[in-house]
């Protein structure tokens, strides 16, 4: 065993980058859920974002174009969900699941000409002075621009939800759509906008996977990331800042598990007769999420402040 091979700073840097796709997808889904809509199609929107971003970036030779295209692709797929659930009043759970099935297939179709090529390079920033700081420079100032934008987006969403009138209306729509409607707010339009925003965020998260983290396009490359994003929203108790924490926790467990393996720690446990399989470690964030959910829900008055009251329910003017 050689735990000294694990450098805490490197570990931190690793988990922060691993968390970025999750962070985008989760903050988008948070806004969607705050508006009272449960879109389980995050995985589908992410992979569409991954393929659209990759296709555009390699065609145009620019990562920036890629991210925009990824966002557009994710939003377009999300709007399909939006139209289905808001105008055709289909069940949100079923539609979201169908969206994932559809998105995975469509992405594979679009992506066929793009397997086996490399995207344009995308490097971390080199900020004068800051990037060269000892320790802090490595920990905070050498990431790529999209990662900082992700953290910035969380701040913006917080401001939007808590400090703007539109944000308040969006939350009101999620809390009680009938009341919001009788006050004259356009429930369906607000929800469509939130759904499109969520799709765009998931799309950027997907593009980050295909352009930065893995960087390549392969069929099925999201491999369940979208589902984890759903868990993070719950873990975060619908609070924007906790998304950051949640994304780091979920991203971090993977990185930690790999580090513990590479350093021989799991082997060492096993030699002591403790069969610690990596799978048990991978379970922990989900169990922690359930625990968090129980804690925040147990107090019913406080729970009402977090979870949107109308989550997953269809809205009809006449009904």
């Amino acid at each position: 065993m050689d735990l000294s091979a694990i450098d805490p700073i490197t570990l931190f840097v690793g988990l922060v980058s691993a968390a970025t796709p999750l962070l985008f997808a989760a903050i988008g889904e948070l806004v969607v859920e705050k508006s009272g809509v449960l879109n389980l199609g995050v995985e589908g929107m992410m992979i569409i974002g991954a393929v659209c971003g990759f296709a555009a970036a390699t065609t145009a030779g620019s990562s920036a174009v890629g991210f925009v295209a990824g966002a557009a692709g994710g939003a377009a797929l999300a709007l399909l969900f939006g139209v289905m659930t808001q105008y055709f009043l289909t069940n949100q759970v079923a539609t979201g699941l169908a969206l994932t099935l559809f998105g995975l297939g469509l992405a594979a179709l679009i992506g066929q000409p793009f397997t086996g090529i490399k995207p344009p390079p995308f490097h971390g920033l080199d900020i004068p002075v800051l990037s060269d700081l000892p320790v802090l420079g490595r920990m905070f100032f050498r990431y790529d621009i999209v990662l900082y934008l992700g953290v910035g987006l969380i701040a913006l969403v917080w401001v939007f939800l808590n400090r703007t009138r539109t944000g308040l209306i969006l939350r009101a729509v999620g809390e009680n759509h009938d009341a919001a409607h009788s006050l004259g707010y356009p429930v369906v339009k607000i929800r469509l906008a939130a759904i499109a925003f969520g799709g765009a965020c998931a799309g950027v998260g997907g593009s980050y996977l295909s352009l930065v983290r893995v960087p390549q396009w392969t069929e099925g490359m999201t491999a369940g990331t979208g589902w984890i994003a759903l868990a993070i929203v719950v873990f975060a108790a619908w609070k924007p800042w906790r998304i950051l924490l949640g994304a780091w926790l979920f991203g971090g467990v993977t990185i930690l598990q790999l580090n513990l393996q590479a350093s021989g720690f799991l082997s060492w446990l096993q030699s002591l007769g403790i069969p610690m399989q990596a799978q048990y470690l991978s379970m922990t964030p989900y169990l922690v999420t359930i625990l968090v959910l129980v804690v925040i829900s147990a107090d019913r008055t406080r729970a009402a402040l977090n979870a949107p009251g109308c989550l997953g329910r269809s809205f009809t003017q006449s009904g």
């Binding site: 690793g14 983290r213 790999l258 799978q279």
Partner: peptide
């Protein structure tokens, strides 16, 4: 050990971890 034959993101993370170590 990745416990999968195919998961690009996980394999990328595993590669980074090994390089860091």
């Amino acid at each position: 050990w990745s416990n999968t034959w195919f998961d690009p993101a996980l394999e990328a993370d595993a590669a980074k971890t090994l390089i860091e170590q």
